[in-house]
Design a binder for these strands. Sequence first.
RNA 1: GCCGGGGUGGCGGAACUGGUAGACGCGCUGGAUUCAGGAUCCAGUGGGAGAUAAUCCCGUGCGGGUUCAAAUCCCGCCCCCGGCACCA
Length: 862
Amino acid sequence: MKGYNPSAIEEKWQKIWEEKKVFKVKSDPSKPKYYVLEMFPYPSGRIHMGHVRNYTLGDIIARVKRMKGYNVLHPMGWDAFGLPAENAALKQGIHPAKWTYSNIDYMRNQLKKLGFSYDWDREFATCDPEYYKFEQRFFIEMFERGLAYRKKTLVNWCESCQTVLANEQVEDGKCWRCGEEVQMREMEGWFLKITAYAEELLSDLEKLRGHWPEKVLVMQKNWIGKSEGAEIDFYIPELDKNLTIFTTRPDTLFGVTFLSLSPEHPLALEIAEKKGFKEKLLEFRERVRRERKKIEEGVAEKEGFFLETYAVHPFTKEEIPLYTANFVLMEYGTGAIMCVPAHDQRDFEFAKKFGLPIKVVIQPKNKELKPEEMEEAYEAPGIMVNSQEFTGLESEEGKKRVIDKLESLGLGKRKITYRLRDWGVSRQRYWGCPIPIVYCEKCGIVPEKKENLPIKLPLDAQIDSKGRSPLPHLKEFVETFCPKCGGKARRETDTFDTFVESSWYFARFTCPDYPEPFNPEDTEYWLPVDQYIGGIEHAILHLLYARFFTKVLRDLGYLKLDEPFSNLLTQGMVIKETYRCPKHGWIYPEEVSPEGTCLRDHCGEKVIIGKPEKMSKSKCNVVDPDVMIKKYGADTVRLFIAFAAPPEKDLEWSDHGIEGAYRFLKRIYNLFEEYVEILKKINYKEEELKNLSGKALKLRRKLHQMVKKVHQDFEERFHFNTGIAAIMEFVNYLQDSLKELDSSEEINQKLLKEVFEKLLLCLSPVCPHICEELWERLGKNTFISEASFPTWEEDLLKEETFILVVQINGKVRDQIEVPSGISKEDALSLVRGLPKVQKYLEGKTIRNVIFIPEKLVNIVVS
RNA sequence: GCCGGGGUGGCGGAACUGGUAGACGCGCUGGAUUCAGGAUCCAGUGGGAGAUAAUCCCGUGCGGGUUCAAAUCCCGCCCCCGGCACCA
């Protein structure tokens, strides 16, 4: 016996699949389509277990859908722009492009070793001008429609990295790359008007309900953060100007005791200049900017000061003092608020600190609020009091009526505000897609002509030693001519946030070589993505941006769909146990002795076994996919990953567990070796197997039951772990029955042929190489990768007998094998004859008998 | 604090619409094979009482409830994980 040799088998089939282009697809309207997509990777250098899990899940789905007769689109590519390439350039002196492309080559090879059924002809990298030129075109069209604009705003700035950072790149107020304290800086940059789609992005979440994880829907909903309220004008006589504020609680309007402006508010500056405390305001503004992170975390003290100015209450005409306060954000609402200390905790704290009055205007039903006794604001709804004609109204009704009156007097209006901000896409980085804009001395901001695209990122740039973008210093890039007037102009040197590339790649995969952005025939056939799979960490950013882009591309006339991803599966992390030495910190598993002591530097300290955590180098708990593939083969790795946990849950990597998966495949392989020579020449027709009896019938029934279960778990539920368990259970059963089944009998050989074929077919989506190999050795001259999902005979599934559970008063007391379809009466008379049952019935009266067909009988006695 | 998801053997996890809790795998124990180890195979494996038997009791985070029957449904509570959190 030669035994199972995964590396030989896997290499062989990967080569054949590639040569024969088994997974190449074309649009074919005569066939139902299925588009399965996994979030494409950033080419960081090597794939990790998280990728392997993501792509294994996708590949199983792709293979199952192919077996079910779908025309399956399953592409792969590279999210290839990004900062790590520049870091590598800095550290290792390799050009970002070279670094990126060589990583891609390496990682492509790694993916190929896993046997994923991608149509590799569709592969692209987003750093390719042939890809990003369309992105530049979209941007220009967005600019033309006012969906892309330039503005000055507060951004996160890292001085040492010389760039703006995205919010998610700021950790604890520090730069994720160098640890430098991030500053808030006012800068100009490009923004995409995602807020114009806020309402649609919110309401379309309804369409995704039931198809996306509830968690993701909720996160997006919160992120968009719709709130309904009113904008109210407070007149400032001294300036003869209105201050407009936003509130969601117009019912508390009569409780206003002061107004607060953000220190960034233009009116605050105007007042400060007029009153001669400009310096004080600017100082305050600076301090607030510095402490912005703290403020956002809610740990900063309330601070601010009186602006020595008053506004007029729209209804009471009272004088209301104006303050500036650190907790008022310029970017939300109007940058100014009305403060009702009795009914808003923040205002309450501010009022207490500055000795401002507290005025109760909402009374709860069960108690009476008294300002002097209050220790916190009462924020819940109640009955309006001290509110002129509104007194006595419920909060909800009051809100409406107050706004109605404001509107009728022209002092305010209904307003919906979103928490969502426009998407800042400018990055002061080199390794990204150039923003196709030119600054002309005469014409100002001018978009490039579309025929000049792509604006190529110059590849001959040298990254400077401080990691700054070289683009502003590259004369041949910067110095250009105005597309409008032909005069001298400067090119924009910022590049796009890399989330832009990943916002539309799924659509380009349908027609990667088409000279225009999209071929309608392809996009209309393949889109939307039927199943999207990726990590939960993209729950908001990437998924929201991609949804936004889809709607924009629709409105620009490129696509005909509202939502890009019909179904979303967010897979859990791959985690592993951690080891920690009191002296050395995190240590590798090899550094732990069998006695549980630390072996590093012969240290001998007792090692603390930590809970399983996300694999990371710093915690010394990474498992390298390459090492696992080399040791066990891709099929084993795939099997373990699919078996160890359901897709959405975290998967704990276990060295023992993967051994178990390997063992299973070896068992299957050895089993086949034993029979394959005989079975190779056997042919059978399903009708020939209809009249089996005894052991053979039972085996065949188990087979068909297994096929059905695998079908349900793989195709309908994506519960690969239980489907695989069913296959394992069947193999256990098969090995038992083979001991008693005479394999020299022809009919049994025919049965075994069916058994082995269907078994391989069921396992093939998970472990394609070994199944392809054994399929061939079973005498097949087709690819199992192109075979159909096995069928099962529904009639055969029914057992002739079943185990009837016998309960007395709801407790299981006995079981008895009875014919299927047994009636209540027959079952009861059988059951009453059982000695155990008789024991329990002695001296009791039967009060009730519950009979669940094919399941149990429950005798209720007193 | 708010929102979402969970709590089942020594471990990962099954149990789909209430109907034998613990499938499958890991680990562990015993046995076979082996000079030995590994690998492989066979048997056992929720806890407790009992003699290793028959048998019985207890068991799905905790406390109640509905039901002939609850991991599953209802009410109250505890704990864990994830997200959000001065957004007016």
